[in-house]
């Protein structure tokens, strides 16, 4: 056995340059995104990240995942490099089935069957549910969907590029499970926005 056999892809990508302040900052941004659904937050990305993950989803996982966190990576996001990077910096477990995950990293092509497998929590422990991190091309406050609910004064508009109509249908079903359900974070290269399970979504084309 060689000592260098483990110096493969991923174990040599640096993480946050200042782990404490950087992860606190990302945590604050995710918290703001969740508590003010649809508001766009800009995240200072780590200096490097695996090829299959974008900068903000890497930053969110660096900040929130630890050794008791199960992470599932959709096939397009999965790579030895990404797995090693996450293990090296967070110690998290990368799981093979979305149903075992606390965070599922997906993109806009990911099928609804994946979302249907995610943990939604239980009546006693609604917090034991999964959070989706969806890598997207662009997020804006253009009018594509209208968000209403806690954390929004009247309504917010949001446009996430290339999100399939089926996703929003699934999300609507998801909100009916409240207090159970899945929360979603959209992550473009530099920005994030979130739609938690508490939010009512109206699609522009449905109105």
């Amino acid at each position: 056995m060689s000592t260098q056999q483990n110096q493969v892809a991923g174990f040599s990508i640096p993480g946050f340059s200042n782990p404490i302040f950087d992860s606190t900052d990302v945590f604050r941004k995710v918290l703001s995104a969740m508590s003010r659904p649809g508001e766009i937050q800009t995240i200072k990305a780590p200096s490097a990240h695996p090829e299959s993950l974008n900068p903000t989803s890497s930053a969110i996982l660096l900040a929130l995942a630890d050794m008791e966190t199960e992470v599932w990576l959709a096939p397009e996001m999965d790579s030895i490099e990404a797995r090693n990077y996450l293990k090296f910096h967070t110690g998290c477990k990368v799981v093979e089935d979305p149903k075992d995950s606390k965070f599922a990293v997906v993109n806009t092509d990911t099928g609804i069957d994946v979302y249907n497998k995610l943990k939604v929590g239980s009546a006693e422990y609604p917090d034991r549910s999964a959070t989706v991190i969806m890598m997207v091309d662009d997020i804006s406050n253009d009018h594509d969907i209208t968000l209403k609910g806690p954390g929004i004064k009247v309504s917010n508009t949001l446009k996430v590029e290339h999100v399939a109509q089926e996703f929003w249908y699934w999300f609507e079903e998801n909100t009916r499970l409240f207090p159970c359900g899945v929360d979603v974070i959209f992550a473009s290269a530099e920005q994030i926005a979130a739609v938690p399970r508490t939010i009512k979504v109206e699609h522009a084309s449905c109105m």
Binding site: M1, T3, N6, G91
Partner: peptide, 8 residues
């Protein structure tokens, strides 16, 4: 301890 990055 057995750090993941070392493998031993």
């Amino acid at each position: 301890i057995e750090p993941e990055e070392l493998g031993f």
